[in-house]
Design a protein around this nucleic acid. Structure first.
Lengths: 121, 121
DNA sequence: ACGCTGATTAGACATCTGTCAAGATAGACG
DNA sequence: CGTCTATCTTGACAGATGTCTAATCAGCGT
């Protein structure tokens, strides 16, 4: 939930890092970034994130569970991982809980990987 | 090594996916992408990749091990993970082994995460 | 051929992770 | 209040992961 997300320290990822190509990563930065990538390192979470991100506005959990062959608690677990990684946030409204992406934390990850094309490789 | 890297099927990541925001990810795409992100989901591997990517040309393994408080085999293991994920490639030249980034496989990952900034989030 | 150095592989072990079933919590509605 | 629905938490367990030591492989020099 929003409150919970605020309790979790904001990931130091946002606006943190130059592209990989610019300079070697410091050890602490690497730890923080690895935490974020770990959240992306699961097919279910990638699909959940893509559903949340590609939807306009917010997405109800009830609309997320349908596409997966997994139990509710498992989906809930994955959403929690995404939320604690700072990649999404959520809010309860009445019976339902809605999720939306935290683009400010997603974009730096993209920037980090945006290396120039290379002759060999 | 290069031979070995060719034996490993080229990751279907390159040129595979529209940004997350464009459309929900298909299940098989998600599996392939998760494989790549899993390789990035470790601080040591992120730092190794940043060293390899930020260097010009190729990087000798002997220059990689120095910055870490880990045994040679452990570094070697992480390099293997990066190689099998298609993020780097390597070649032995005489006594030494050199690594370089595979930017063609890195860039699609960046593109995937490049979501537009959002009012809320 | 022999040993030396750089790098990888094999095997072992503790820790982390994804999943589920069962139970708990939050709100809506009689 | 009681119950129904939607979601989350807890506890358990199989399988994956990061690290190490010991052993192996690939070249270079003598």
């Amino acid at each position: 939930m929003s409150k919970q997300a605020e309790a979790v320290p904001a990931l130091p990822v946002a606006g943190c890092c130059a592209p990989l190509v610019a300079a070697p990563l410091a050890a602490e930065q690497a730890v923080d970034l690895a935490r974020a990538f770990k959240a992306l390192a699961d097919p279910v979470r990638l699909r959940l994130l893509s559903l949340i991100t590609s939807a306009e506005g917010e997405t109800c959990v009830c609309d997320l569970t349908a596409g997966f062959d997994l139990t509710g608690p498992t989906i809930s677990h994955h959403l929690k991982v995404l939320r604690e990684a700072g990649l999404v946030d959520s809010e309860r409204r009445g019976t339902w809980v809605f999720y939306w992406p935290r683009t400010a934390n997603l974009r730096p990850l993209a920037a980090l990987l945006d290396v120039p094309a290379r002759v060999r490789g």
